[in-house]
Design a binder for these strands. Structure first.
Lengths: 194, 194
DNA sequence: TTTTAAAGTTGATGTAGGTTAAGAATTAAT
DNA sequence: ATTAATTCTTAACCTACATCAACTTTAAAA
């Protein structure tokens, strides 16, 4: 059942009866993404939130030199979208790409708003989700302001132990906020000191 | 009327009738804060969101060296709280302080949750508020990863033109993410080049 | 009004992390 | 299985910003 994971995810925060679950899942579309498929391109309007059930996506922006900066990884059980663009329905600056063969559930902005009126409890669910996302994001900002690259890497390893082996090092480096070269040196050093 | 500002703020996103407005404002407490008053201390549990109607507050954390890092300023018409602590009701890491004589409206976590059931529309209001906050925060993270201190300062000046003159330079420096010394040099240079 | 403390500035020097470049190791394509 | 492309690593050098210290200015206290 492709909806098991998302329903279990929701049930952590709100209770839905069978009819409500059905209403909810009726608004979802399943989509398979091949590796390197671009799900959302910078400059486009983000029309869907994606809930990952298999594989892994990443979201990133370009800076003025054209360098990519990874903003988030989305392994199974995570949502990903360009929140700015999704909310404003203006062209965004984030590109979202499948890193491997992935499966996602799509919830369109329109469907989401319909669901808010049909099942008001979902407003609570998404509020809580957004709150958690905000807190995580604030913590990351704090970490970027107060910690060294090495400390941020350690936090990353602890928080996403499963991702470390599957992700390309350059993507981890970018998420941490350093160049691949420095990341490589950093790791070589920390291996030596163990 | 101390509630005018907050009611106007709310009315941007949802409509409340007179009875609902009354119910809402009944859950608020007014508080005056003298300059340098600490409204929330790192290590404490955050029990209130504060909506500023006069003056200005700032939120900051300490790093392991004891250096302060300003996370946000809250001029009138802004909310401020330690979201992590407020949501989890665990001791937080943020200190919130009045920079000048300020007046705030307090909404306790408990009152907020009561309001969600009494006036479900407020769930929407706070969802939207949190979404906006998340987007702003993500943008700030992107700016920190992709821009120089000078570029971040320019953005700050454009975004908060009124604050530039009232805030202490060391607080702006901290918000931007540089030392007061470097901030000073940066400004000296940019004045020279004008 | 004078004193004291805090904030801001300027200079000399240090460092985390960036850049450029070239080779080694993987991975993908033929 | 080879070739081609991408990713990763290592090294030399570079820059944005930090640190420390002394001085000046501003603001707060007495």
């Amino acid at each position: 059942m492709p909806f098991d994971l998302i329903l279990k995810n929701i049930s952590k925060y709100i209770g839905l009866d069978e009819a409500e679950k059905k209403t909810f899942t009726n608004h979802l579309t399943t989509k398979t993404l091949n590796p390197k498929t671009i799900f959302l391109k910078s400059g486009e309007v983000c029309k869907y939130s994606a809930f990952v059930i298999k594989g892994c996506l990443r979201g990133y922006t370009y800076d003025k030199n054209g360098t990519e900066h990874v903003l988030d990884f989305a392994p199974p059980d995570w949502w990903i979208a360009d929140m700015y663009s999704l909310i404003t329905q203006k062209p965004g600056f984030i590109t979202i790409e499948a890193l491997e063969e992935s499966e996602v559930l799509l919830l369109s902005k329109k469907a989401q708003e319909e669901l808010y009126s049909q099942i008001p409890k979902l407003e609570r669910f998404f509020r809580i989700l957004t709150e958690k996302s905000l807190v995580a994001n604030q913590q990351r900002l704090i970490d970027n302001m107060t910690l060294t690259a090495e400390e941020r890497y350690n936090i990353f390893c602890n928080r996403y132990p499963t991702l470390i082996n599957t992700l390309a090092k350059k993507h981890i480096a970018s998420y941490i906020g350093v160049t691949p070269e420095f990341f490589s040196r950093m790791r070589a050093k920390s291996i030596r000191n163990n």
